[in-house]
C-alpha cells in the first residue's frame, strides 16, 4: 500500500509503459481484494473476478487516463480512492452481467429481499439523532456489524462507538416513552 501511495502520477498519466507496469504491480493486490469482496456474495467463477478487475484498470487508463487525472492527492490517499473506484467498477460489472442473463439462484437473497411495508413502524423525528448516531445504529443493527468494525470505519475507538450508541438509544427511549432495559 505504501508503494502504491508513492506512485509518480505525473509520469503515469503520460502513458509511460514502465510507470504503468509499476503501478499495476502495486495496485493489483488492492483491486483484486476489493473486487473479490464485492463479488463474494455472487457465485461467480475466477474468470468473472479477473474480468471485473481488468475493467478497473481499463477505466483507469481509458481516454488518455481521464479517470486517473481526476484523482486529487490533496484530498485522499491513492489506495483509498482506488479501492472506491474498484468497488464502483465491480458493482457496474455485476449489474451488466445481471442484465445480460443470470439464473435466479445466482442472485444473493439480500439483493432479492423486499422490505415488509405493512408493519406499522414508529417514525424518528428529524433532528432527534445526529447523522453519526443514526449511522452507528444502522451499522450495528441493520448490518449486524461488531462495535470494532464500526470503530475502524469511523476512525474512532470502540469505547466512543459504545457511548454514542448508548446516548442515541437514551434519546430514542426518551422520545418514545420507553423504559431502559
Amino acid at each position: 500500500m505504501t508503494e502504491l501511495n508513492q506512485t509518480d502520477l505525473q509520469t503515469l498519466v503520460t502513458g509511460n509503459k514502465r510507470a504503468w507496469d509499476r503501478f499495476v504491480t502495486a495496485a493489483a493486490p488492492l483491486i483484486n481484494a476489493v473486487v473479490r469482496r464485492t463479488m463474494s456474495s455472487y457465485r461467480l467463477g475466477e474468470d468473472d473476478v479477473l474480468d471485473a478487475a481488468q475493467d478497473v484498470f481499463v477505466r483507469l487508463c481509458a481516454g488518455d487516463f481521464r479517470l486517473l487525472k481526476t484523482y486529487d492527492p490533496a484530498r485522499a490517499g491513492l489506495s483509498t480512492w482506488l479501492a472506491v473506484v474498484a468497488r464502483s467498477a465491480a458493482v457496474d460489472h455485476l449489474r451488466r452481467r445481471r442484465q445480460a442473463t443470470e439464473p435466479l439462484d445466482d442472485v444473493p437473497e439480500s439483493a432479492l429481499g423486499v422490505e415488509d411495508k405493512h408493519v406499522e413502524k414508529l417514525q424518528i423525528p428529524q433532528g432527534l439523532l445526529t447523522e453519526r448516531q443514526t449511522l452507528i445504529l444502522k451499522c450495528l443493527y441493520d448490518e449486524e456489524r461488531d462495535v470494532s468494525e464500526v470503530a475502524v470505519l469511523l476512525k474512532i475507538d470502540a469505547q466512543t462507538v459504545r457511548s454514542t450508541h448508548h446516548k442515541a438509544l437514551l434519546r430514542l427511549r426518551a422520545h418514545f416513552g420507553e423504559e431502559p432495559p
Binding site: 500500500m1 493486490p29 488492492l30 469482496r37 483509498t80 468494525e149 475502524v152
Partner: peptide, 16 residues
C-alpha cells in the same frame, strides 16, 4: 461498501 472498504484497507492484502 464503506464497511467492506474500511476492513480491506486496514488489513494486509493477499497477492493478486
Amino acid at each position: 461498501a464503506a464497511l467492506d472498504l474500511a476492513d480491506i484497507l486496514g488489513k494486509p492484502l493477499p497477492a493478486a
